[in-house]
């Protein structure tokens, strides 16, 4: 089959969807399909969204592909007789605007209408996560089932002995709450360290984190790296981490950190309000789920470093559970090509 993988992207911005697209392309090629990725430039400024969606709709794909799979809003706006939408997240700029007012509400309603029209025309719509499925449901958009994207290269993640460092790999931004972990670390003792990595769109936040670390007197126990971490670097960091912490406020639709941690047999530390991450972790079984405050997080951190056997057990269980769920590419490809 000639398959188009259509995505919409801000140029030069990293993101999980790039890995998903690459992974999917490899998998489809390995199964004998001809695959062409299509990258459409996209600017998420709210006032610009609708004309771009109209432009996407005009792109002529029927003559080139037997099937198209769209990843990332609003690539689903393209038209094709056999369109499969893998809906991971709606546009943040529209659904979580900086300011809520009449015009923002009107934009959200109009974009939702356009989304609905695009999804109704699809051959299949698969939600990339529970959260995505809820949004589809809430906005009365068509959708049939949840299909979380698997890790693109699970074999690259290795499980080594547990060290002393708790690793956070996520965009360095207030909604990922790296600052909360700093405050938690300050309430712990011992060799426990924290490593915060990930790109920062606003340099003010990593700076604030450094200032906080100094102020809290833990600068020597914290490593702050505001940059893109390659897959290889990630594998190295996770291999000997004590745990992986992920606590995005409101969740971000992928829960990759959980999948990666599980694959590397690391216990996962998350909070009750972290969306998919909280859903994906069983407290006391595959990781620890605490209240989103420094004291509770500190307690969990202390537990992990004091009770290594617990940490090992949690990590192993996380890995076993992930393997059991069978969220591998075979299942994904089968659903996408159905």
């Amino acid at each position: 089959m000639r398959i188009g993988l259509i995505t919409a992207a801000l140029p030069l911005a990293g993101g999980a969807h790039r890995l998903i697209l690459e992974g999917l392309r490899e998998q489809l090629v390995a199964r004998g399909h001809e695959v062409e990725p299509v990258w459409l430039p996209f600017d998420a400024t709210p006032g610009e969204v609708l004309p771009q969606m109209a432009a996407f709709r005009m792109v002529r794909l029927d003559g080139y592909f037997d099937r198209v799979i769209t990843l990332r809003a609003p690539a689903h706006a393209v038209a094709h007789r056999r369109k499969v939408v893998w809906f991971t997240h709606p546009l943040r700029s529209i659904h979580e605007p900086e300011q809520e007012h009449g015009h923002a509400r009107a934009l959200r309603a109009a974009v939702t209408r356009a989304d609905a029209a695009a999804l109704r025309a699809a051959h299949a719509v698969l939600a990339g996560s529970e959260a995505a499925r809820e949004i589809l449901y809430r906005d009365k958009l068509p959708g049939s089932g949840v299909l979380p994207p698997p890790l693109p290269h699970p074999e690259r993640l290795r499980a080594g002995p547990l060290g002393d460092e708790v690793v956070v790999i996520a965009r360095m931004a207030p909604w990922n709450r790296q600052h909360l972990l700093l405050e938690a670390l300050a309430l712990t003792q011992g060799p426990l360290r924290l490593r915060l990595c990930g790109t920062a769109s606003d340099p003010a936040y990593p700076q604030a984190l450094r200032d906080a670390a100094r102020r809290l007197g833990i600068a020597d126990r914290v490593t702050i790296e505001p940059r893109w971490i390659t897959e290889e670097e990630k594998a190295n960091l996770l291999e000997n981490a004590l745990a992986v912490a992920t606590l995005p406020r409101h969740g971000n639709g992928h829960a990759y950190p959980v999948l990666e941690a599980a694959q590397a047999a690391r216990p996962i530390l998350t909070t009750t309000d972290a969306g998919e991450a909280a859903d994906a972790v069983a407290d006391g079984e595959t990781g620890l789920v605490t209240s989103p405050d420094p004291a509770s997080l500190a307690q969990a951190l202390d537990r992990l470093q004091a009770d290594r056997a617990l940490a090992v057990r949690l990590g192993a269980a996380a890995r076993a559970r992930a393997a059991q769920r069978g969220t591998g590419w075979d299942a994904v490809v089968e659903r996408l090509l159905a």
Partner: peptide, 17 residues
């Protein structure tokens, strides 16, 4: 006015095209 505000995004897009 609410009706006009609600219609504005559509109108802006149509005008742009």
């Amino acid at each position: 006015l609410q009706r006009i505000v609600a219609d504005r995004p559509r109108q802006d897009a149509a005008e742009r095209i």
